[in-house]
Design a protein around this nucleic acid. Sequence first.
DNA 1: ATGGCGTACACCGTACGA
Length: 261
Amino acid sequence: MKLATWNVNSLNVRLGHVIAWLQANPVDVLCLQELKLPDEKFPHEALAQIGYYACWAGQKTYNGVAILSRSPLQAVQRNIPGYDDPQQRIIAATLPGPDGAPLRVISAYCPNGQMVGSDKYAYKLDWFNALQDWLQAEMTQHPDLVILGDYNVAPTDADVYDPEAWVGSILVSEPERDAFHGLLHLGLQDTFRLFDQAPKSFSWWDYRQMSFRRNAGVRIDHILASTDLSGQCTACVIDKIPRGWEKPSDHAPVVADFIAR
DNA sequence: ATGGCGTACACCGTACGA
C-alpha cells in the first residue's frame, strides 16, 4: 500500500500535474497541501473520474488540505479539535490500511513561520503544540496512524543543502526542530530515515536562482508513521520528477510503501 | 540588505511562501 504527500502550491494550477502524476503513480492515498482554493472549487469530479475518493478542507487564496484515496474515507475530521483556527491546515480520515485494519491518515500543512521571532513564528510553535497534544490523543485511539505533509521543518542539517548558511533561520531553528522531535517522541517514525538515502535528498527547492538545477533544497515534507505501522514500511522515496515539469510546484511528492503484517 | 520566482487578488501593487 502506497501513501504519498505533495504540497501542490495551488490545486487550480496543478490539477493537471496531480492527475498526470497519479496516472503514472497510482498510489492508494495522496495527501495534498496548499490547495489555495475554497471548498466549492475543489475538483472532486475530476478526481473521482480517475478513481479517487476525496475529503478536503479548502480556503480561498491560502492553505487548504485534502486526502485522496482509492478507498472510501470515514470519520473525517477537519482542523485540530478545540484549536480555534481559521487557517485550513489539517484534515484526517480513516480508511483500510495495508492489512485491512483501520488506518488513521492525516494530511498536514504546518505553518511556515516566515521569520524567527515574528508573530507567524509564535503561531507556528503554538500550532505545533496543539498538534502534538491532539496527536497524542489520536494515537491512543488509532494504533495505526500516519501523518503526511509539509511540516516546514528540516529536522537535521542533513536535510539542508547549506546548513552553515541556514543556522538559526526559519525551518531549522532549534525551537522548530524541538517541535518536530516532540512529534517523534510520541512514537512516530520519520519513514524516510528508516532507509538508506542518497545524500542531499530534498523535497523543496526555491523557484529562484535555479535552485532545483543546483539541488539547493531542503527536506521539509515528511511521512511520519506510528511505531506499529512503521514496522510495515518497506520504502520511502522522494519523487523529483514532477519538480522538473513545466510550471511545477516548488515541492516534490514523497511516497511511502507499506506491506501487510 | 534586498530581491530573486510564483500564486492569488485585485490593482496597476501587496501579501505570502520557505
